[in-house]
C-alpha cells in the first residue's frame, strides 16, 4: 500500500483575512491567507482548505481573490467551503483556481443540489461537509445527527445514513466535523469518524477537536479516516505540518514526506 494519508490545514477566512489567529514567527502579516497558504505548502501540506465565514453576501468576492492568488503560486489541491449554494457559486470557485468545493447546509436544504453539482462538475470536486453531533444518551446505541447553522439547529437526520445518501448523490469525499469536539482540543470523535468511514466507499476527512499530534494519528488508525484536517494546532505555531507527518509516520502511518 502506498497511498499516503493526507494532512489538510484549514484556514477560516472572514472578509479576506484569516481569523482565529495565526502565529508564525517569521510572518509579518499573520492574517494574510496567501502568505499562510504559501507557508503550509512549503511545510508539506497535502491540500489546503479555505472556509469562508464572511457573513455578508457582498463581501464574498474577497474569497475569490484569495483563491486566485493562492492558486497561481501554490500547486496542491485547494478546497473552498462556506456559502456554496448554487452551481454558479461552484463555477466561480473552480474558475478562480479551486479544485474542490465544500457543500454543507445547501445539501441539507436541497440534496438534489449535490446531484446536480456532481453531474455538472464531476464528483471529484464535490466535497460534502457534514456537521454532526451525538444525540444518543449514555447506555443507548451511538447515534449522531446532522446540525446546521454552526451546530445550533438540529435537523433530525441520522449522520451515518446522510453520509451514505450523499455518496449515492455523487459526493466524491466527505468532510466530517464533530460539533461536540470542534474547538475543544480533546481529539476527534473517533466512534463517529469510524462509523462514517466504514459506511461509505468514498474518502472521509476527519475534522473537529485536534489538540495534539496523537489526535491526528488516532483519527487515521482508530477513526479509519483517509485524511485529517486541523486549524489551530498549525496556526498557533504549536506544530508544523512536517512535525505532524513525522509523528504520524512514527505511528506506522504512510505519509508524503
Amino acid at each position: 500500500m502506498s497511498l499516503a494519508k493526507r494532512i489538510i490545514p484549514c484556514l477560516d477566512v472572514d472578509n479576506g483575512r484569516v481569523v482565529k489567529g495565526v502565529q508564525f514567527v517569521d510572518i509579518r502579516d499573520a492574517g494574510d491567507p496567501v502568505e499562510i497558504a504559501r507557508r503550509y505548502d512549503l511545510e508539506g501540506a497535502d491540500e489546503i482548505t479555505f472556509l469562508d465565514i464572511t457573513a455578508t453576501h457582498d463581501n464574498r468576492d474577497t474569497i475569490v481573490h484569495v483563491v486566485e492568488q493562492v492558486a497561481s503560486e501554490v500547486f496542491i489541491p485547494l478546497t473552498v467551503g462556506g456559502g456554496i449554494r448554487t452551481l454558479e457559486d461552484i463555477r466561480r470557485m473552480l474558475n478562480a483556481g479551486a479544485d474542490k468545493v465544500g457543500i454543507n447546509s445547501a445539501a441539507v436544504f436541497n440534496p438534489e443540489f449535490v446531484n446536480q453539482a456532481a453531474e455538472k462538475f464531476g464528483s471529484q470536486c464535490i466535497v460534502v461537509a457534514i456537521d454532526a453531533k451525538k444525540v444518543s444518551q449514555s447506555g443507548e446505541e451511538n447515534r449522531w445527527e446532522i446540525f446546521t447553522h454552526g451546530g445550533r439547529k438540529p435537523t433530525g437526520i441520522n449522520a451515518v445514513e446522510w453520509a451514505v445518501k450523499m455518496k449515492d448523490f455523487g459526493a466524491g469525499e466527505i468532510l466530517l466535523t464533530s460539533m461536540d469536539r470542534d474547538g475543544t482540543k480533546s481529539g476527534f470523535d473517533l466512534l463517529l469518524t469510524r462509523a462514517i468511514s466504514e459506511a461509505v466507499s468514498i474518502p472521509v476527512i476527519a475534522s473537529g477537536g485536534v489538540g495534539n499530534l496523537d489526535h491526528l494519528a488516532d483519527g487515521i488508525i482508530e477513526g479509519k479516516a483517509d485524511a485529517v484536517l486541523a486549524a489551530s494546532i498549525f496556526h498557533f505555531g504549536e506544530y508544523t505540518i512536517e512535525q505532524a507527518k513525522r509523528h504520524m509516520q512514527s505511528r506506522g502511518i504512510e505519509v508524503r514526506l
Binding site: L3, R6, G172, S201, R256
Partner: peptide
C-alpha cells in the same frame, strides 16, 4: 477497504 475514487498522493 480501499476507497474509490483513488484520491491523494501515491
Amino acid at each position: 477497504p480501499l476507497k474509490i475514487p483513488h484520491m491523494g498522493w501515491n
